[in-house]
Design a protein around this nucleic acid. Structure first.
Lengths: 213, 213
DNA sequence: TGACTTAATGAACGGCCAGTCGGTAAGTAC
DNA sequence: GTACTTACCGACTGGCCGTTCATTAAGTCA
């Protein structure tokens, strides 16, 4: 019934490489169009394959999104977790390291993922849950421990570690979101490196136990 | 051609009240479904009118969104601006007041607007621009002035006022976004009041010029 | 009361796209 | 070579929803 319209394109069979290529293409398009507005046909085109091929590897568009989060974001969290585990110096130095790492990530396309999750959490609870469990919960626990340690050692003031987490991450998140959304539609500019440097400076001074510069 | 199917619903003519009612219904639905996923038919139903009626007052769905931003968010910005203008005490007290005001707003449905703008900025540049010009730019200038004043008076350390703005607003934004998205899909809880209190405490101590508690 | 104005209605239209599936061709075994 | 397996393709379907517009009825005025 279907007349293969014209010159059929050259095919290659590469079962192993496909999933990563699709995830890569999907993140790139989700990043600048949003999840809902991205057509799977375009993802396929960018990955250099046909639309149907995506369905050989991912059962639905939503599952593809979950794969993007798992393959691109979670490994970075692992790396930060490892960094914290192996750290020996002061807690303040550790936070500086975490912030530096976050700043690196903000410069990559990975920074778009939080925006996407935020935007789609209403329509795709499964995505929100994945992110909450595998990203937010882990990151929260991680930072709470860092703060608790610094307080226990007398380095930081005795503030609630749970409350300190969003205080610390808020400005980092704001930089990531700004770059991914409003920053593209206005002449207002922020230099993420400078803002984060200021933030860490202010934050560390603000939680320091006593005399400290 | 169209057979008015069944018992036509009772009509009322209320030209003046319609726009606000529509905006109200739209914000409520946008809030928990997102902009793209909200059907105009549902907005109409919630406002107690027919679908076509919306088009008597708003030319497109996008324009309706712009109206939501303008009617609900901008007046609050005006209020904060006025508060700053009339303030006489220290800059630290002023920032406390601004944070308290933000905390109040976070408890209302207005907190959903930033999430919506963020989410749709890619697909609707006009919305991003409206927000950037009439909300972000004004808010930025406002806070920069507060910081500059505090620095000039010797109350704050000489940090870059431009960089301080996202440092100050980041945690506030994060609380608003958390409540509107992830907070609904996980058992991780934050008490916005406590987090903001901690933030302001840490922030003020972090930017204070010298000895100060 | 009847003529007129205009707010309000909702069926129908048109365009879009996730997901399906019959079919093609690259690779493989013999 | 021939038969077979399976990665891959893309036209098509079905449903959704923003927008239109012919029609209806509420209000107004003489």
């Amino acid at each position: 019934m279907q007349i293969p319209s014209r010159a059929p394109k050259r095919r290659f069979r590469r079962k192993d490489a496909r999933p990563s290529e699709i995830v890569e293409a999907a993140l790139a398009l989700f990043t600048d169009r949003g999840f809902a507005a991205t057509r799977l046909e375009d993802v396929a085109a960018r990955a250099g394959i046909g639309k149907g091929t995506i369905y050989l590897y991912f059962p639905t568009k939503e599952e593809l999104f979950r794969a993007v989060v798992r393959r691109r974001l979670v490994p970075n969290l692992d790396a930060i977790e490892a960094m914290i585990a192996r750290h020996a110096g002061s807690s303040a130095e550790l936070l500086l390291g975490v912030a530096a790492r976050a700043q690196q990530l903000i410069a990559t396309d990975i920074a778009a993922i939080p925006k996407l999750v935020l935007a789609e959490s209403g329509n795709f609870p499964a995505i929100a849950q994945l992110y909450a469990e595998e990203v937010a919960k882990r990151g929260l626990a991680m930072l709470e421990r860092v703060f608790a340690r610094g307080i226990a050692s007398g380095e930081f003031r005795p503030l609630d570690p749970h409350c300190l987490v969003p205080v610390f991450t808020g400005p980092l998140l704001q930089m990531a979101l700004w770059q991914q959304s409003l920053g593209r539609h206005t002449d207002i500019q922020f230099d993420p490196a400078k803002v984060i440097e200021t933030h860490v400076d202010v934050f560390l001074r603000g939680i320091a136990a006593a005399s400290d510069a």
